[in-house]
Design a protein around this nucleic acid. Structure first.
Lengths: 135, 135
DNA sequence: CTTTGTGCAAAGGCTTTGCATGCTT
DNA sequence: AAGCATGCAAAGCCTTTGCACAAAG
């Protein structure tokens, strides 16, 4: 074998994977597999739903994507190169505000440290009613 | 009609609902509907799965339960009388540490206020590797 | 007696998987 | 040529819903 075992095989370059990756690059926010599939279909790219799921699974395994689970149970994907931030979501109209804030990050760190946890990730969702919907 | 429309009808008292409520009272942490159903079954109480789901939906609507969605997409329920806290979870062995901390609460409040959001809830998960699993 | 709750089974939505075929390397 | 990737359809989970029957008030 001519490989270095420390490096995993790279996924093959296919039209479908490129399409999924490209869409995720263009799309800055969390999006579901179903929606990705629909968007690709409506923009002419023929990609099977199963392939979308498999591509996403790959990218998640490779650490290229962040995932969260929506309230309805759908998994949402986002390219994780984008700066880490959290969302403030209106539960009525769906308006989303990005929150960049180091406080939570520090909090998560300190909690982890206090309990000797390593390699921590955190996930924060704040849901409420925006001014417009509160009235 | 003899009712005051401001009060919603109270759910009827049935063996099944009591069983579900009682189990949730005994169980201090988040638990899935499926698991509730299984536990009830194995402890002799005959409660249909659909009934478990409907009972839970009721209690959620009545504000008696908190819910979160697990990574696998299952909805987890918890009696919300218990003090609000967050979990620090080991992604390897599943060990869970309850974190009582006012910092995050305050952070969520301030973020909400800064964006004129009302009636906010928040959900925080910190996942990492505990000391034992990190070695 | 009227209304609400229950059970069962079927249906729904998201995701995964088996298998034959096609494409990348 | 060899092996991973794709597509399709079937199957798997969790959850919801339709309908007839049972129970609560």
């Amino acid at each position: 074998m001519t490989n270095d075992r420390s490096l995993r095989a790279m996924p093959r370059r296919t039209r479908q994977r490129e399409a999924v990756a490209e869409l995720l690059t263009r799309h800055p926010d969390f999006i579901s597999a179903q929606r990705i599939h629909a968007l690709l279909a409506s923009s002419g790219a023929q990609v099977g739903l199963a392939t979308v799921y498999r591509s996403l699974a790959q990218m998640v395994a490779d650490g290229l994507l962040d995932t969260i689970v929506s309230d309805s149970g759908e998994v949402l994907y986002r390219q994780c190169s984008s700066a880490h931030h959290h969302h403030l979501v209106c539960r009525s109209c769906g308006t989303t505000v990005e929150v960049h804030d180091t406080q939570v990050e520090q909090w998560a760190e300190s909690v982890a440290r206090a309990h000797d946890f390593a390699d921590v990730q955190h996930r924060v969702e704040v849901v409420g009613l925006c001014q417009a919907c509160a009235s």
